Simulated assay, not measured.
Amino acid sequence: MLVLDTNDLPKGDRTAAYRTGAVEEGGVDIVEEEEPEERMWRRIDLWNIGSLTLFNTQGTGFSIGRSLGQARKDAMEAVAVVLQARGEGGFSFEDHQRRLTRDSLSLLHMPDGYGYSWSGTGSSLAFLLDTSGLTVPTDAVRAALPVVQHSPVGILLVNHLKGLHAVADSLTGGPETEALVNATTELTRAWIVSVAGDDRTRRRTARETLLTRVLAYARLHLRERDLGPQRIATVHHISVRTLYRLCEDSGFSLEQWIIRRRLEGARNDLAAPSHRHLTVERIAGSWGFSDAAYFSRRFRRTFGVTPGQWRRIAGG
């Protein structure tokens, strides 16, 4: 949902409109623009996904901050996870400063304040999450702020955030919304605790978020033919037997889950005009199917039509 596009406003009102929106939506009280009023541009899109708020911000260079005074004033008990989607910028927290490049993730702890900026035209994706849902001690959150970019869980969260943004307009508020909020919360917990907190907290969080991390990893590597139970188990430092039991306890087969996601990916590619020049076999291979006949059988069994029929129906 579009909240603000300063290009729709008279030039004399643009900076003031953004300042007002930043204060109301993000609890920001420091705003400095890189460009003069007549050249500054800012667009903000916002989605309320259950208890989670997702932001997409685009525009010319700027610097924003949340001072300790503002943090004490509005008492926002929340964290924000920010993805630098375009351009280069910076993040600061107390005496910690970090340069941000494309796909850099930053963790913002609202009760402590922060500084965030980029230069030139840039964009960011961010979500705001109530800390009560994280069940992570405040000390662990604060300890993670300067070092969380080193966590290997970050790449899973980056891709999850991009995927969340891709489907935000189509969410209806049904059961899938709650599931997405839970998955986002669990990945954020795992990201924070992987670099901060005591061993007991890390072990508990790793155990509680294991299935979320397994499925996030599988989604990230669906196109790779060697993706399978052994590889997934090895990456997550568990046995294949433990992996199977984890999925069975949640009511699904891992192999069938992977096949279904690959079939859905292939179906989308078959319908895409940009893939019209690719053969069905080429698309099937790009989604990990080495046997074209097997792919065709599974596709028809799942969707009720052959891959070729689906391509003609969808106009791909």
Rank of each mutant, 00 (worst) to 15 (best):
L2Y: 03
S296R: 12
Y217Q: 15
N268I: 10
E24P: 08
S67P: 00
I44K: 05
D291N: 09
T60A: 04
D139A: 06
I49D: 00
I192A: 01
A206R: 10
I155A: 05
R142C: 12
E224T: 09
S239Y: 04
A85H: 14
S296E: 09
T172V: 00
L46R: 01
F91I: 00
G87R: 08
A292C: 06
L128G: 03
G315P: 12
R203N: 13
T172R: 00
P273I: 08
V148T: 11
A183V: 00
A218R: 12
L100R: 13
L105G: 04
D103R: 07
A80Q: 04
E248R: 13
S296V: 05
E264S: 11
R231H: 15
L100A: 06
A272N: 11
T131M: 10
L4W: 07
D5F: 02
H236G: 15
I64N: 02
H96Q: 07
D139C: 12
T201M: 06
Y244I: 08
C247Y: 02
A292E: 11
K11H: 02
G21N: 03
L263A: 03
I192V: 04
Q97S: 06
E208L: 07
A75K: 00
T121P: 14
S117G: 05
A216N: 00
W47T: 00
R231P: 14
D95E: 13
L171A: 08
H236N: 14
Y18A: 13
A314W: 14
R260H: 04
H109Q: 11
S67A: 06
R202Q: 12
V305I: 10
K73C: 00
I232C: 06
R219N: 13
Q309F: 15
T60F: 04
F299Q: 01
T234I: 12
R99M: 15
L100S: 06
T209S: 03
R43F: 01
L227E: 05
W41I: 00
I155C: 09
Y294V: 06
R223W: 14
T209D: 07
L263G: 10
A75P: 02
I49M: 03
Y116R: 09
S106K: 11
G304R: 09
R213F: 14
G12T: 14
R19E: 11
E34W: 01
R225S: 13
A218P: 10
T131D: 07
R300L: 10
A166P: 14
V193R: 06
L278C: 10
V280R: 12
T188K: 04
I238Y: 08
A266H: 08
H150G: 12
G197D: 14
R42A: 13
I238C: 08
